[in-house]
């Protein structure tokens, strides 16, 4: 069983830089075709500072910072038994290529179902940009199949 005493634990802040090439490769991976995600002039014509990041990009940022797997490793959970259960994003300001984002993750809940056969690990991560603006809040539920 996951150690419930880590509820409330806050992990050290991490910093991730949003590189243009990363935005393009992410957009390509999800099958985006809108030129704003690939072509800087199209992005600027649409009113963005640079290439905007697709809506689910912030999760790639927390994965790049190893935030989800870090906790699984710390808890000794085999990644192959872990699945994404729920994910939410609340957007506060735009996130574009060139931004340098700082985030901090905390554990907000741990619970189980089916007499412990399924365990749920819930974390929240707040992201801020280089200007100190609140960019996005993510809430992630990971399901562990025991």
């Amino acid at each position: 069983m996951i150690d419930k005493t880590i509820i409330g634990k806050q992990y050290p802040a991490f910093t991730v830089e949003v590189e243009k090439r990363w935005v393009r490769s992410f957009a390509e991976a999800i099958g985006e075709t809108n030129p704003v995600y690939f072509d800087e002039s199209a992005a600027k014509s649409a009113g963005y500072r640079s290439l905007p990041t697709p809506p689910t990009f912030p999760f790639a940022m927390i994965m790049d910072a190893n935030q989800s797997f870090m906790i699984l490793d710390e808890l000794g959970i085999d990644k192959r038994r872990a699945m994404h259960g729920e994910q939410s994003f609340d957007y506060h300001t735009d996130l574009c290529a060139g931004d340098v984002v700082t985030g901090q993750q905390k554990v907000v809940d741990i619970y189980d179902k089916k007499n412990g056969a399924l365990e749920f690990l819930v974390t929240e991560t707040r992201l801020e940009n280089q200007r100190g603006e609140h960019v996005c809040d993510l809430r992630t539920t990971v399901v562990v199949r025991n």
């Binding site: 905007p52 697709p54 689910t56 957007y91 735009d94």
Partner: peptide, 22 residues
């Protein structure tokens, strides 16, 4: 979920998206 994001940004500009959850 990335596809669902695309569903929404094809409907309205992304700057109008306030939240997405699944």
């Amino acid at each position: 979920l990335g596809f669902l994001g695309q569903l929404l940004t094809l409907w309205v500009p992304q700057s109008q998206l306030r939240s997405l959850s699944t």
